[in-house]
Design a protein around this nucleic acid. Structure first.
Lengths: 117, 117
DNA sequence: TCGATACTTGAATGATTGCGCAAATATAAC
DNA sequence: GTTATATTTGCGCAATCATTCAAGTATCGA
């Protein structure tokens, strides 16, 4: 009953396929992929990592990331929509910070993984 | 000495900027972003999550992810180049698995984070 | 009120990317 | 040898994306 069925975009091993499917049904793939995408661009990743240290205004974030004010602003909106960063306005300055410390934990887990290779 | 300099793509708070810069210099941003990108596409994420359960052949991966054989194969090459997956060939079938268990750890950390929102 | 500063926003653009398609490769069965 | 199966690969294109530019809003000092 194993490996004797043809493939043809059908199934080779039904049990394994169903097992894997169950695993996928438990999570919101779309949402997860979106979250990872937040970290998948160098500008956004630099913004996020800079904010693990401390709160920064838009102007300083642009300097740190080495891109234009407009570019950071666009990416900050992106990260705001994903609830990754938090906005705090004082006068005409806008300070950004990470919405919660889980982000730092995730960053460190990945950092350690990459160091081990 | 604080907040009294103009912005103009220069710096508002030099100390903070330098502090953030030091943090960024410690890591390879390019490499990290590339790693996150592996998880940022729904097809790739489905492949990776399916492989946390068990080894699967290309055909079954296509079924589980709900995409064509060609599409999975393209993405598997991508993941192979990033050393995320491992290839094992038996006869004319090719079985893929995750290269190490760190991946599962990372996936779980993020999964928990998203559940808490 | 006026001008300068700090940031946001929408449209335009060039680059990247995911996937379909068709051809190619590799292995197994006959 | 031929044929069928399983996967890989290069090309091309549509869709997505990151950034620039220019115009917009908001706040402060004069």
């Amino acid at each position: 009953m194993k490996d004797d069925e043809t493939c043809e975009v059908l199934v080779v091993d039904k049990a394994k396929v169903n097992h894997a499917r169950e695993e996928l049904e438990k999570v919101d793939i779309e949402k997860m992929a979106e979250f990872y995408k937040a970290f998948s661009d160098t500008t956004r990743l630099q913004i996020i990592m800079a904010l693990t240290v401390e709160e920064l205004c838009v102007c300083d974030l642009a300097t740190v990331a080495g891109v234009s004010i407009s570019a950071v602003s666009h990416q900050l909106r992106y990260l705001r929509n994903l609830s990754v960063v938090h906005k705090r306005k004082t006068g005409r300055k806008v300070y950004y910070s990470l919405r919660d410390e889980h982000i730092s934990t995730i960053l460190n887990t990945v950092k350690e993984h990459l160091d081990e290779t």
